[in-house]
Nucleic acid binder design. Structure first.
Lengths: 188, 188
DNA sequence: GTCTATACTATGATAGAC
DNA sequence: GTCTATCATAGTATAGAC
């Protein structure tokens, strides 16, 4: 049996993903976690503290998932393409990126910190892979790893936005393929 | 003197931008617009109807602003770079893109429609400029206008996400410059 | 650790007077 | 067109019993 604390965190992750921080009430969390009022407030001081735990968990999951492709086998280009093209729940959006739209998350340093750290890590990890591609001669020496990394991360985050706007995964896929077209290809 | 209806719409635009649909209450709108309860409900059936008017207005503003650069003078590359690099309130995010994080906006066809139309228009407009660049020989014939347009729009939307996460405009600027680096340059 | 009771505010709206 | 009641529900907790 999963512990109450664990169920509370997981339910909060799910609700933050779907409805954001402002749109998620303690009552909804309790219902989803099948936990009582008293139980929730016994384990967490309030909504913010629980959200912090949930956001940290989501950030860790995002990093782990990204590292599957980025730290895998293959050339830099293959790993980046693999990361870009991996299966995603596009219409749900990014569980971490989504929180940047939430004014109360951005305003509270405790809540924004795990979001900031997650994307700082992702950009750093992508930059490493790009730099590696430069070392192996796959990418031209003129390519800037930090810039390119930010562009790659932005295409994914923006792809989610365009897909949700359209109610279709198509714009996401177009944006990703457009980026892959633009990235330098190793001369065969 | 600006009319009440106008003040209500403008205040709603501003609040939707800052706090989203879920985070914006009728009371907050009335306060911002300096309009009474009765006044607001006299002009609009409720929060959703007012939000629809505000979102349509914001969409129109986004289109007009984009067309300043995209429909201006210069080569395709210059106009796209001009659009990407124009002055923006990066840390506030995109007033239209922001709404895609709002579950109630995405769930209501009346509210999602203006968001969908705005980005469909933007991608189409960008694709036209890319196609024009192909015709003039500035861009290679292999470049896909729809994909490239989606990538450009995504970099901006994702750039906002990364910037708000970081609490700094830097990731936005890196992502934009990274994209400009990747876009084909006319052979001099 | 969990439950129920209680509290106080905000939300989103309607009704009827002016 | 605008104002002031009024209302039912939800949000976000705290207190104290079990």
């Amino acid at each position: 049996m999963v512990e109450t604390v664990e169920r509370l965190i997981r339910s909060t992750q799910e609700l933050l993903w779907e409805r954001g921080y402002v749109g998620t009430s303690p009552k909804a969390i309790q219902r989803a976690a099948d936990a009582g009022q008293g139980s929730m407030y016994h384990h967490f001081a309030g909504k913010a503290e629980l959200a912090k735990a949930a956001i940290e968990r989501s950030g860790a999951e995002l990093r782990a998932a990204a590292d599957v492709q980025l730290g895998g086998d293959g050339t830099a280009g293959e790993r980046i393409a693999g990361y870009l093209e991996r299966e995603r729940e596009v219409l749900k959006g990014c569980q971490v990126g989504r929180l940047t739209a939430d004014p109360d998350v951005i305003a509270d340093p405790d809540l924004r910190a795990p979001v900031a750290e997650t994307f700082a890590w992702l950009r750093g990890r992508l930059a490493e892979v790009v730099a590696e591609g430069k070392r192996t001669g796959e990418y031209p020496q003129t390519l800037d790893p930090e810039r390119t990394a930010a562009t790659i991360a932005a295409v994914l985050q923006g792809g989610y936005v365009l897909a949700r706007a359209a109610g279709s995964t198509e714009p996401f896929e177009l944006a990703v393929q457009g980026l892959i077209d633009l990235l330098p290809e190793a001369t065969k």
